[in-house]
């Protein structure tokens, strides 16, 4: 029993990390309808900026400055490029961010080289805070969880509970109306995109030293963040939050399950050893844990295309 609580807790830790990494993407997608493929690249920029700042001033100033810088770059990208592409539709927007991701990776290589940079956890937080089941949890990990929860509370508060949030939401569905009400719709979008990329940058500041800061980190973050927002439901912040936790728990728990489908079916007398794709069924669940989120995503999309809490189909 204690073992399961332990894995559940680990799952929540991982889920919160996932939410931290995908919150910016959710914000941009739910407010603007843009699926930002360069999200992970902004995450990487955040990590590199924070590293650069930390070499001069230490970790803490970078926590504020780096996300702001990344957000500014994001806002400029929206203002000068994304807005142009917007006319050609969502596919063009998506492809633009796809190309942008390529360029950012190359630019990072040019500036910081291909080796990992020594961006480390601040010494103030580099100690074990408590232990569960013989495993220590570092203060930094708890700090990451706190940041993730703060992000959620803050975003939820702004979007659902404030007037600005309502204007932003209305700007997506009824841009003309919002425009005639005297709001500058393009500027709202620019700010939203800046805020979303800034959140990605913040995740990079915090994730870069917990993991590894290197030019492949954007690629390594990969498509898992898309899984989070798709499963959660396109456009739903709460959905993304729940999806993060769910995926975190599923994946972490699966690592602990050392049996395969073949084993399970064997207990009820079914022999899967000679059926098609038998190699797949004989794989232990723990070995395929990291690809379960993708399976989960496909299942969700097939069974409930709008996701857990989604409000619209596409």
């Amino acid at each position: 029993m204690e073992g399961w609580i332990f894995f559940l807790f680990n799952g929540i830790v991982y889920g919160l990390l996932l939410f931290m990494m995908s919150s910016g993407l959710t914000l941009i997608f739910s407010m603007m309808g843009v699926l930002n493929f360069a999200h992970a690249s902004f995450y990487m920029l955040g990590a590199y900026f924070a590293y650069q700042i930390s070499t001069i001033t230490g970790f803490w100033p970078g926590l504020i400055v780096a996300p702001v810088l990344v957000g500014c770059i994001g806002a400029l990208v929206e203002r000068y490029f994304l807005r142009t592409v917007h006319r050609h539709g969502h596919v063009a927007e998506l492809l633009f961010t796809f190309g942008l991701a390529m360029l950012i990776e190359e630019a990072v290589v040019l500036i910081w080289g291909r080796n990992p940079v020594p961006y480390t956890v601040p010494p103030d937080l580099d100690f074990a805070l408590f232990q569960i089941g013989g495993m220590s949890y570092s203060a930094y990990k708890i700090f990451m969880m706190a940041v993730s929860i703060t992000m959620f509370v803050f975003l939820y508060g702004v979007i659902a509970r404030t007037r600005i949030g309502q204007i932003i939401q209305a700007a997506l569905t009824h841009p003309e109306t919002v425009g005639t009400l005297g709001h500058n719709v393009p500027r709202i979008f620019m700010l939203v995109f800046g805020a979303g990329t800034g959140l990605a940058g913040l995740a990079g500041v915090i994730g870069g030293n917990a993991f590894v800061t290197e030019p492949g980190m954007a690629r390594a973050l990969g498509t898992i963040v898309f899984v989070v927002i798709i499963v959660g439901g396109l456009g739903s912040l709460t959905g993304a939050f729940i999806a993060s936790l769910l995926i975190g728990v599923i994946q972490t728990t699966a690592v602990a399950i050392d049996v395969s489908l073949t084993d399970i079916f064997a207990t009820v007398g079914l022999d899967l050893r000679n059926v098609p794709l038998h190699e797949l069924w004989s794989k232990r669940i723990s070995d395929v844990a990291p690809i379960l989120p993708y399976l989960f995503m496909v299942l969700i999309l097939v069974l409930r295309p709008r996701g857990l809490l989604g409000t619209r189909d596409s």
Binding site: L35, T223, V227, V288
Partner: peptide, 24 residues
């Protein structure tokens, strides 16, 4: 489905097949 949902399903299948390729 079409649109974004279709795109994401295709991405999910691509990841699944790519991952299975190491297993099978």
């Amino acid at each position: 489905r079409s649109g974004t949902i279709f795109a994401m399903i295709s991405l999910g299948f691509a990841e699944l097949v790519a991952a299975s390729s190491n297993i099978m």
